[in-house]
């Protein structure tokens, strides 16, 4: 039940003397959806590209479907689905031609028409990819990622350029893939998306995993304490409390408060707090370093 599909320990990567990854440890279990979150340049894409076999690590251990990605052969690749960040390909084929062609690479592909329908491109199936909008091209990328019926699906910012309806439809598709047992590694800038889709998340800042855990406990219990916010005499006041109802009841005794809100911190709030704290710590470290020189 706890079979690991991805195993990463003490993963490090240096580019020309710069440490892009400074020792990451995490596992992804079979059937799980795991989100890798973090600001631009934190090391998310480097990590995912090492797992996909596109980059070589400097040190550490990595196993993807039991194989070292630096030695993954065609049989290994046939079990993966990869949705990269978007490229600028010519797009001279139609959606259907492209999917039918790629389906031929895999031993047990999905049905082409079903995949086209599942990404909502039925009306564009006979259109050349170059004539599609950015969001539609992105859906073709997703379709190409799942055409081979992967055991493990990598999604690197899959919904960039999607309109809200396309994003909802994409969430349905991911939930369907999850129900079929697909393991998914997701990176995204949309934290509502991460909260909606993933079981666990890791937050990377500056090449380190600063937080790792189930999506509904990430950041710790402290970070999830509700906030009561109201205004009195033109001043905004806040109180964090585990018992907001009781607190509001007492507040009301002093008269109806202005602009009363009870806020439950979203993943986004928690994330911003964690990333902000990490940034502040890094800044402090550099400034003390500078001072000591």
């Amino acid at each position: 039940m706890t079979e690991s599909v991805v195993e990463v320990s003490d993963l490090r990567k240096n580019y020309h003397g710069v440490e892009a990854l400074r020792g990451l440890d995490f596992d992804i279990r079979r059937g799980e959806t795991f989100a890798l979150l973090g600001p631009n340049g934190a090391g998310k894409s480097t990590t995912i590209e090492i797992l996909e076999g596109y980059r070589d690590r400097t040190s550490g251990e990595v196993r993807v479907l039991g194989v070292d990605p630096q030695r993954g052969g065609l049989d290994w690749k046939a079990r993966l689905g990869i949705v990269l960040q978007s490229g600028g390909e010519q797009g001279n084929q139609t959606v259907r031609e492209q999917l039918r062609h790629f389906a031929g690479f895999y031993p047990n592909p999905r049905d082409v028409e079903e995949v086209i329908a599942s990404v909502g491109l039925e009306a564009k199936a006979s259109t050349r990819i170059r004539r599609l909008s950015g969001g539609q091209r992105r859906r073709v990328d997703v379709a190409l990622g799942i055409i081979g019926r992967p055991e493990l699906l990598f999604l690197d910012e899959p919904t960039t350029g999607f309109d809200p309806e396309a994003r909802r439809q994409f969430w349905l598709l991911i939930n369907q893939l999850k129900s079929e047992g697909t393991t998914i590694l997701l990176t995204t800038h949309y934290l509502d998306e991460a909260a909606q889709l993933s079981d666990r998340a890791g937050i990377v800042t500056d090449g380190l995993l600063v937080e790792l855990g189930p999506i509904d406990t990430i950041g710790g219990a402290q970070a999830r304490i509700p906030i009561v916010r109201w205004t009195r005499d033109g001043v905004v006041r806040e109180e964090r409390t585990e018992r907001p109802g009781e607190f509001v009841a007492r507040l009301v005794l002093e008269g109806e408060p202005d602009r009363l809100e009870v806020i439950r911190p979203s993943l986004e709030d928690i994330y911003l707090e964690l990333v902000g704290a990490a940034d502040a710590a890094a800044e402090l470290a550099t400034s003390t370093e500078g001072a000591s020189k």
């Binding site: 996909e52 076999g53 596109y54 065609l74 049989d75 690749k77 046939a78 993966l80 990869i82 990269l84 978007s86 490229g87 600028g88 390909e89 010519q90 790629f102 690479f105 895999y106 190409l144 081979g148």
Partner: peptide
């Protein structure tokens, strides 16, 4: 333009 990178991630020999 990324064509070869995409192909590199598939079981195309």
């Amino acid at each position: 333009d990324g064509t070869l990178k995409r192909l590199a991630g598939t079981p195309l020999s």
